[in-house]
């Protein structure tokens, strides 16, 4: 999505990204970014929390107005409404998963190779 934002801006369309992967967006470089420090999947607010979703949208829209230079990053003050158990979870590779993941990767590569074979 960072690439889309860059294209829109280069063609005169202001953008704001609302997202939860700060490192990826920062590394790419985008015009305006509202960072919501949540598990990936709900950048615009926790599910079924219309109050928090409104707050976050308001912050994102405010950034459209307030930013006066690229790479403007603002961190939302809305907190994920549970403990921090989610932080170590995403994409972790546990020792007991090593063999399963290796087999999964091999299966994927086999499927991709077959898809590339004509006929």
């Amino acid at each position: 999505m960072s690439l889309v934002a860059r294209h829109l801006e280069a063609n005169g369309m202001p953008t704001v990204i609302v997202g939860s992967a700060l490192d990826i967006v920062e590394y790419c470089g985008v015009p305006r970014f509202l960072f919501t420090d949540f598990p990936l999947g709900n950048p615009c607010g926790p599910p079924w929390r219309q109050d928090l979703q409104r707050t976050i949208a308001g912050q994102a829209l405010g950034l459209l107005r307030d930013a006066d230079a690229p790479r403007t990053i603002r961190r939302s003050d809305v907190l994920w409404p549970s403990d921090d158990d989610w932080r170590p979870r995403y994409g972790r590779v546990k020792p007991e998963d090593v063999e399963r993941l290796r087999a999964l990767g091999e299966e994927r590569r086999r499927t991709q190779a077959q898809a590339r074979t004509p006929g």
């Binding site: 889309v4 934002a5 829109l8 369309m13 990204i17 609302v18 615009c44």
Partner: peptide, 10 residues
């Protein structure tokens, strides 16, 4: 007719 865009990747 959009003047600006809000992009929200999952």
């Amino acid at each position: 007719g959009a003047d600006a865009a809000l992009l929200s990747p999952l």
